[in-house]
Simulated assay, not measured.
Amino acid sequence: MPKKQNKIVAYIKKYLLLFIGAIITSIGLEIFLVPNNIIDGGIIGISIMLSHITQLPLSFFIVVLNIPFLYLGYMQIGKTFTISTLFSVLSLAYWVAFFLPIPSVTQDLFLAAVFGGITIGVGVGIIIRYGGSLDGTEIVAIIFDKRTSFSVGEIIMFMNLFILGSAGLVFGWDKAMYSLVAYYIAFKVIDIVIEGLDESKAVLIVSDNPDEIADALMARLGRGVTVLHGEGGYTGEPKKVLYSVVTRLEVAKLKLIVQEKDENAFVTINEVHDVMGGRVKKKAIH
């Protein structure tokens, strides 16, 4: 019974956050970008231009243009993703219509692009983090990624450059350039929301003093250390390889600890996009 309750709570939390993400995104659109004829990338950007040309509601195009991509997502990615995306798209359409009568808080195009990009980045980042999407071009990119040599990011970038370039023909080239600013800011903020401000780093340490380093890391950083058993490629001697995950701010302290224990230690540090479980509770750093 507790497991079932936990599953229900997680389910409710997920859709609540998808709903909140849609509200935040709609604020960025209707309070900053749309009134100033600045667009975002993807389906939302196309919807803004079509709404301007036809004078039909933006919410109408957001839903209609995403329908074929939702079908593709269902066929190629899965039901759970499609349901989360449909919920996010319908929520966005509702709140875009809700905020439509509210005037823009600024007529300064640069401020609109900056704060619109930040707001949209936060909203979209929340939605992506919890398994949804607002942009059918992402689905297309995932499908083409499996069939071409281009990555998902490269495909999305190409499509968005075309869409943002089209804004120059509809709204003028100055608005297109401000749209590019808004898109870039949103792109960066999405990364921050998905990965978190407290970015984690995975560390591998090969040393002749592995036990001393492991003890020091646990005592002075309060981080768990996993011992992996390797072998020297040249000598064939067994080696203990230490693996740990630390925050970005702890990397300098970790390097100092390793150098104190073994100046010749080999250390590699890589970015970690998400960490789940297994972390030792943080202790005070001495």
Score class of each variant (00 low, 15 high):
A113Y: 02
G236A: 06
K253I: 08
I46W: 03
G131P: 03
I24R: 04
S26G: 08
K3W: 10
I194F: 05
D208W: 08
E271G: 10
K283P: 00
A216H: 08
R223T: 07
A216P: 02
R248L: 11
I53E: 08
V64N: 03
H229D: 13
S26K: 06
V89M: 03
A141P: 02
E231M: 12
Q107E: 15
S151T: 15
I120K: 01
V193E: 02
T268K: 05
D198H: 15
F162M: 15
D262A: 08
D262C: 10
V189S: 04
G232A: 07
A186H: 02
N66A: 07
I142G: 00
K175S: 09
A202K: 11
G196R: 08
D145S: 14
I185K: 05
I46G: 00
S104Y: 08
W173K: 09
L17P: 04
N209D: 11
V181T: 09
I163E: 00
F171C: 05
V122K: 01
H286I: 13
I53A: 13
L111A: 12
Y74L: 15
R147A: 10
T235Y: 11
N36Y: 06
V251F: 05
L228E: 12
V203M: 04
D108Y: 11
G73T: 08
I285T: 12
E30P: 04
A176D: 00
G45I: 13
V122C: 04
G236V: 10
I213W: 00
G117E: 02
I12D: 02
L18A: 07
I118K: 04
W173N: 11
K13C: 13
A182I: 10
V63F: 13
F61C: 06
S207P: 05
S151D: 10
Y74F: 14
I128A: 04
S151H: 07
G123S: 05
K14D: 05
A141H: 05
N66P: 03
V124Y: 00
R129L: 09
A112Q: 06
I23K: 07
F87C: 09
N264A: 14
K281E: 10
V105W: 11
V9F: 15
F98N: 08
F144W: 14
G123T: 05
K261C: 10
I44K: 07
G236S: 06
G236E: 06
P101D: 06
G165N: 09
G172M: 11
E260W: 06
V193K: 06
F110S: 10
V64H: 02
N66E: 03
L180C: 08
V225I: 14
A97R: 14
N270Q: 14
T268W: 04
D211V: 14
Q259L: 15
A112E: 03
T85G: 03
S200I: 12
V63K: 01
D215L: 13
A167T: 06
D211P: 04
F32E: 00
D215M: 12
P238Y: 05
I139F: 09
I102F: 15
Q5E: 13
I39P: 00
D198M: 11
G42H: 07
G165C: 08
Y243L: 14
F110C: 07
F150P: 04
I23S: 05
L249T: 13
S151M: 10
I142V: 15
Q259Y: 14
T54A: 08
V251Y: 04
W95S: 03
L111I: 13
V189D: 01
A265L: 09
V152W: 03
M75F: 12
K201I: 11
D191M: 09
H273S: 11
N66H: 05
V189K: 03
V96D: 01
F144L: 15
